[in-house]
Structures are given as C-alpha cells and as structure tokens.
Nucleic acid binder design. Structure first.
Length: 781
DNA sequence: GGGTTGCCCGTTTTT
DNA sequence: CGGGCAACCC
C-alpha cells in the first residue's frame, strides 16, 4: 500500500512514477527507499528541491538518484555534476555510489564546489587571465598578502585589522561581486570604503602572483562564463543532471554558478534543510533555498520528514523548538516507524556553575559507559570552543578518554605549512609567498634588510623573489647560504623528476636543515612536529607528483581522522552537523552564551533564528538520549557572571522534556557539592573507588581523583588574595558587586578592614572575609 | 636576530 | 583569565 504524501508539483507537470512502477525489479537499489525518497529519485526531469530534514536519508537519495540516472541511461556518468560542500561529503558520496554502480562512479563529476571550480579554471586558465599552474592561496597566505598590501599603502594594521578587511572582501566574493560591482551603500562606511579600495589592490596582486583565493574559485568561473559564452555552452551541454548537497549552505556565487550551468537542461536537484542553515555568517544565503521556487518557477518540491535517527521525544522537542522560527519553509519531523518507542524524554538540568555542569556530565558518561555504551557513541556539544576547557578537566578527573574536535587541522600546522611551502617552491619557483615562508626557516641570516633588497631587485627586473636572489649584491655567509638554498631547490626539482614524492620531500627538508631545526628545539611540541612531518611523508606516498599533491593540499584542510580508540567527542554545535550519536549532552544553554549575544547584536531576529537552528541541529544529533544543561554562574574572561537559562529551554514542548532539578534562582541556593570539609574528606577518602587500572593502563582514575581533589582542597584553603579592590577615590569597597563561591552574587554594604558585610541577592546579609570574594565584572559579551 | 614584556581581545569555520 | 602578537630592548 502506497503511503500518502505530497509532492508540490508545478502546474501541468506529469508524474512519471506510473511508468516506473516496475523499476524496483530492475534496480534493486530502489527497494529500501520510502515513497518520498523514491519520488525524489525518480523525479529526474526539471528542477527539484528536496527538503530533507535531519536524519531523513538525504545522502541515500542523492546517491541513489545518481545511480538511477546512470542505470536508466538518462545520462552518461560524466554528464552528471554532483556538488558538495566538504571533501568528506564528496568522499562518502563517491564511496556509496561506487558500491551501487561500481567503477562508473568515478566518471561522475563529483566534488566540492571549489574542486569543480578549480577543474574548470585550470582548463580555461588563459581565458580567465591565469596560467594553468596558478596557485591557490590558503587562509594564511591571504592574510599575509593583505597585510603586506595594507602596510605598503601606509595603513595602520593595528587600526584596521587585515583579517577584518579580508572578511569583508570575502563576503563580496561570496556574492560574486567584482571590485567594480560593489555598490555604493556598502562602501559608505570608512571601513567599507577601505575594504573596497583594497579589494581591487588585492585582486591585482593575486593576478600578479598568478594566484587565486578560495572565493575566486567560484567567482572566476562565473566571470569566465560571462565573458566566454562558448565555454559556458560547453559545460551547459555537458551537464545534463546536476545534484547539490546541503543547499542551505550555498552562497550567492554558488547559486549563480549552478544557475548558469543548469540553464540548458534545467535538471537541477538541490537537497537541503532550511532548518539546518547555520552558516550565514560566512556567506551562506538561506534565501537560496527559501526562494527556490522563485528562481525556478517550474520546480517541484518534495519533503522528506520521516526520521530514521531519533526517538519520538527527541524529535518532538526539536520540532517544537524550531517551530518558533518565522522564516522557514515548514516541515515536521516524524519517526519513520509509527510504533517506534518514544524513548526517554529530553533531560533539562541546571547547575550552580560550569564546573559542576561538566562534572555531572562526566559522571553520567562514566555511568553509561559502565552500562556498555561506547564512548564514541556519546558527544558533548557546546556553543563556543572556550567551553571545552571545563570538560577537559572533568573528563581527565573521571578518567574518560576524550577527543576535542575542531582544534588545529593538519594542514594548518606550522610545520606542515612550511613543508608544503618547500614543495610549492620546488614545483614553481615563482611562488613568492612560498619563498617568503621558508627563506629564513631554518635561519639563514636573512633579515628585514636582505629581504628588502631581494624584493627591490625582483620588482626592478620583474622576476620572482627566488630568481632575484642571484642578482642581489650580497656578501659572505649570507651569499653562501642563499646560494645553497636556491641550489637545493633546483636539485630537488631535478630529483622530483625521477624520485618518489616522499623522497623529494625528505631530501629538501633534511638538506635544508629544516628537520634539524626542530630536532634541536627543546620545546615540548617539537617531537609532535617531527611526527607530523613523518605523517606528511605517508600522505605523500599517495601522490604521483608535487602538482597533484599541492592541488589536494590546497583544497583539503583536514585529514580523515584515522580509526581511533573508543573516545568521547567534545565539539561545537557547528562541527556536529551531519553527525549522529546515541547520547548527546548539550551544555551551556544560557542566555548570551546560547543564543550568543553577538549573534543577536549583529543580526537581530535573523541572528536569533540562526541560533535556534543551531539548537535544532544539536538536538537532532541524538538517537536515543539528549540532555540539555545550563549553569547559573559562569566564569567568563576571568570574572564571574550570572546567567539565565536560555530562552530555548522555555521553547521546548513540556511533554517532551523532564526537568529533574528545581530551577536555581539568582544565586540563592547553596550548591550541594561543596559542603566544605565534609565534601573534601569524603572524596579524598574515595580513592579506593575502582581505579580501573586493570581495564587499561592509560588512565588511573583513582590517581586523577586524588590529584584533583587535593588541588581543589588546596585552592579552597589557600585562597589567592582578594580581588575586591578598594576604589582609588574613597579607599572603600562599599557598593561593589561581588561573587562568593557558595553564596553567589551580592553587594558590599559595610566594610571594616578585611571584614565585609555583603547583602546577597537572596536577601541575606553575611559577614565575609574579603579574600573569599571576587569582584564581579560587567558581562563582557 | 632573538628573547621578553606588555597590550589587546575574546562565537561559530569550510574551501 | 590566557593566547597571540607587536614593540621593545639587548
């Protein structure tokens, strides 16, 4: 029996599901699909928007649809374009497609927007004003370049942060605006006009360097197509079917690019979820998905609302929350299986402070681990990375192996960037940015003066910095070491013609003294850096030549995490999109932190709605259990601040949540965990508590506990001197707002030396020694 | 050219 | 409070 569902069909369109009724026999991969998914796969002709809620199987739809088009011989694999946002998504899709249709999967044009952009630009480089070996700047290069240009023009980079300028330029590129197309209103402010000015200079410089940045990888193909209709036509003819993943994350440039490419066949299928649009701040345009019908009036829309991931309570909570957003297409997740267990309600729990919150979460995770839940099936999601520190402490104490996601990426590490720069220079000695990065790394005695001379010569002779070295009048050891450097690069280039890539890399890094530089350094990170370079050699094994590797390294920012041990993950809500876990802890649901004050200040209601979508993304990561926590007191930038529970908590439908604590009022409740002496004695005595040493030798939980509690005890009794300073003018502490670790917030109403009378927010007045109080700052957000 | 100090700033991050 | 960076001093 066919389930009832709706496709919003455009007028006079004919559904083709009738004629395909027996396709299930022909194409076994259709069998597992539900009716909506199947409709999305079979509706091949014309524009189609698939609104795919969290956990409703969008990747399955995308891959099956691609397979279907090929197997049904609607197009050859190379006539299909499938774009994603991340390399990871592209990789997964390719894998799954290969499982379905085998080697043909590799002929599909499947990749990130940027990778597709590069492919087009390399082919028609000359028509885009480049040569085909143009280099792609990473974020680091971009900042450095902008900094140089600003400094050259005498701009005080302290007053005008190069990154801020770049950010503005990026946003223009996201909108596919060339410098001359930026409108007057955007240039109206001082910062805007400066950014406008330097956008043009920056582009000129890129052109000179035969380089592009990430934004250009989308912008320049659009310009290319605009200026060369014949090239556009070639691609328009080629791509009979276009599929787009995570459409809610697309920016204007991506939209325009797709529109150009789809113009001939109109077979564009975009899959996305407006409720999961969380990247507007980096140029994503929710309007692309909200107004799909406006851009493609003949578009059909299919909603995928059957969720295969979460329990009914989790879905209910998430749906209730997101329904508070005004700007959305509307969609309600429901459990795929009607009789599915409703599961446990979402737990909402408040704490005295952030430390307590983290401790509780650590304990809960330890308990569920004992019940057999794998740590890797558990996640702690936070709004801001600063929150992770508290969790590190708590997990170390509890002896839980954890992993913080979103720290430094492999290719962002200093040593890797250096090594890549050496390779770039070997590949192309005109790469001035690479030259600058490594010319004095290790030290070759090249200081500001020498560099200036080289730059000057290069400019006069219109040659690269590398080539300029030979022409600069230099003396003694500096001459020698520079000649040695250029020689080595040339030797390496020759070597690269015959040797394997790791050998070439090893050669240059050893001979140049680069490895030695780290080997001699005594810092604790040095060993790690050497290991990372060894890891780089491993990666290099997979590439035929430097060019291929550089192409990869320019577009890929992190390596696939190798299969790791059973670890708990801590990450930001943003980083969690697309993932799922059995148990999820959502921490720090407090006003100003989440929703973050800055989001609201900068973007008002839109900002608030995006924060709400972030909450929705977080909740829908959970398969079986979600807990939302908040703290009443949080230390921010060194001062205690009291916080209100997030408004999002009030927006959760009561029938789907359970609240197992009373709501803390303003700092009036004594935290149960710190009954001073009693607490410490008790817990230090707890050292016999299952040390777990036999389960694995990595963590000795007993040891952690002992150290931790000893430290807490020490801290408690040996307080640092008071931070409630006397005002200069009156010499008094009267009237200061203060925080006490147990009694909470209050005001100093009477001062007698170090003995202060404090009226706490609970109304009580207590005599407190100044050293037990901290002055409270205004909320720094 | 290198080490130290003092000042500023603090949301989210992929390509 | 703590990290990053630029100015400053040897």
């Amino acid at each position: 029996m066919m389930d009832v569902f709706e496709i919003e069909e455009p007028m006079n369109s004919v559904s083709n599901s009738e004629e395909n009724r027996d396709d299930t026999e022909t194409f076994s991969f259709l069998a597992p699909l539900n009716p909506e998914q199947r409709a999305a796969v079979e509706h091949t002709e014309g524009p189609l928007l698939v609104l795919s809620g969290a956990g409703t199987g969008k990747t399955r739809v995308l891959t099956t649809r691609t397979a279907y088009i090929i197997e049904k011989r609607l197009a050859k694999p190379y006539q299909i374009l499938a774009v994603t946002f991340t390399n990871k998504a592209a990789y997964e899709m390719k894998q799954r497609l290969e499982q379905m249709i085998g080697a043909a999967a590799f002929s599909v044009w499947l990749g990130t927007f940027h990778a597709i952009g590069v492919k087009i630009l390399r082919k028609y480089a000359s028509k885009a004003g480049l040569t085909s070996d143009f280099s792609i700047l990473n974020t680091d290069d971009q900042v450095r370049l902008m900094k140089n240009i600003l400094t050259e023009q005498g701009i005080d980079i302290k007053k005008y942060n190069p990154e801020t300028i770049l950010e503005i330029v990026q946003r223009w590129k996201d909108k596919a605006l060339l410098p001359q197309e930026v409108n007057a209103r955007e240039r109206a402010t001082q910062l805007g006009s400066l950014a406008y000015d330097f956008y043009a200079r920056y582009q000129n410089r890129l052109h000179l360097l035969n380089a592009v940045d990430f934004g250009d990888l989308l912008l320049l193909p659009i310009v290319l197509f605009r200026n060369h209709p014949d090239v556009l036509e070639e691609y328009q003819n080629k791509f009979r079917y276009i599929l787009v993943d995570e459409y809610q994350d697309s920016n204007v440039a991506q939209y325009l690019l797709l529109r150009l490419l789809a113009q001939k066949w109109h077979n564009i299928c975009c899959v996305g979820d407006d409720d999961q649009s969380i990247y507007s701040w980096r140029g994503a345009e929710v309007d692309n998905i909200l107004s799909f019908r406006k851009f493609y009036p003949d578009a059909a829309i299919i909603r995928l609302e059957r969720n295969y991931r979460s329990t009914a309570h989790i879905l209910g909570a998430a749906s209730g929350l997101i329904s508070h957003n005004e700007t959305r297409l509307g969609k309600t997740l429901k459990p795929a299986d009607e009789e599915a267990k409703s599961g446990r309600k979402v737990l909402v729990k408040g704490f005295w402070n952030g430390m307590q919150e983290a401790d509780w979460i650590a304990e809960q995770i330890e308990l569920s681990r004992k019940r057999g839940i794998r740590l890797s099936q558990t996640a702690v999601l936070v709004r801001a990375t600063v929150q992770t520190r508290l969790f590190e402490d708590a997990f170390r104490k509890e002896g839980i192996p954890y992993k913080i996601i979103g720290g430094f990426k492999f290719y962002e590490r200093e040593e890797i960037k250096d090594a890549v720069a050496y390779l770039r220079l070997i590949l192309n000695s005109n790469d001035d940015l690479a030259f600058l990065r490594v010319i004095n790394k290790p030290k070759r005695g090249v200081g500001a003066k020498a560099l200036e001379a080289i730059t000057e010569t290069a400019r006069e002779k219109k040659i690269s910095l590398f080539d300029a070295v030979a022409w600069v009048p230099l003396k003694g050891t500096l001459r020698q070491s520079l000649d040695h450097f250029t020689d080595l690069i040339k030797q390496a280039r020759q070597k690269a013609e015959t040797a394997l890539l790791p050998e070439t890399a090893r050669f240059i890094l050893n001979e140049s003294g680069y490895m030695q530089m780290w080997e001699q350094e005594k810092s604790p990170e040095a060993d790690g850096r050497i290991e990372n370079i060894e890891e780089l050699y491993n990666v290099l094994h997979e590439y035929e030549n430097i060019r291929d590797f550089i192409e990869y390294a320019s577009l890929v920012t992190d390596t696939d995490e190798s299969a790791e041990e059973d670890q708990l993950v801590v990450m930001t809500l943003h980083a969690s999109k697309g993932l799922e876990f059995q148990n999820v802890y959502l921490a720090g649901w407090e006003e100003e932190l989440f929703p973050h004050k800055k989001a609201i200040d900068e973007a008002g209601t839109d900002g608030l709605e995006e924060e709400r979508r972030l909450a929705y993304v977080g909740l829908t990561r959970a398969k079986e259990f979600a807990a939302i926590t908040y703290a009443n007191n949080r230390k921010i930038y060194g001062h205690w601040v009291n916080a209100l529970p997030s408004r999002f908590i009030d927006e959760l439908p009561p029938e789907h949540i359970e609240t197992d604590t009373q709501r803390y009022g303003y700092a009036s409740v004594k935290p149960a965990w710190k009954n001073q002496q009693f607490y410490f004695e008790n817990n230090v005595a707890d050292e016999n508590f299952d040390s777990n040493a036999d389960e694995g030798t990595v963590f000795d939980r007993g040891q952690w506990k002992r150290e931790r509690f000893q430290k807490e005890k020490d801290d408690f009794y040996e307080r640092k001197p008071s931070r409630v300073y006397q005002t200069k003018e009156t010499g008094s502490r009267l009237g200061k707002r203060v925080h006490h670790e147990i009694f909470g917030f209050g005001v100093v109403v009477h001062a007698e030396g170090e003995r202060l009378d404090v009226r706490f927010d609970s109304g009580e007045i207590k005599k407190i020694m100044a050293r037990f109080l901290e002055e409270v700052g205004t909320n720094p957000f």
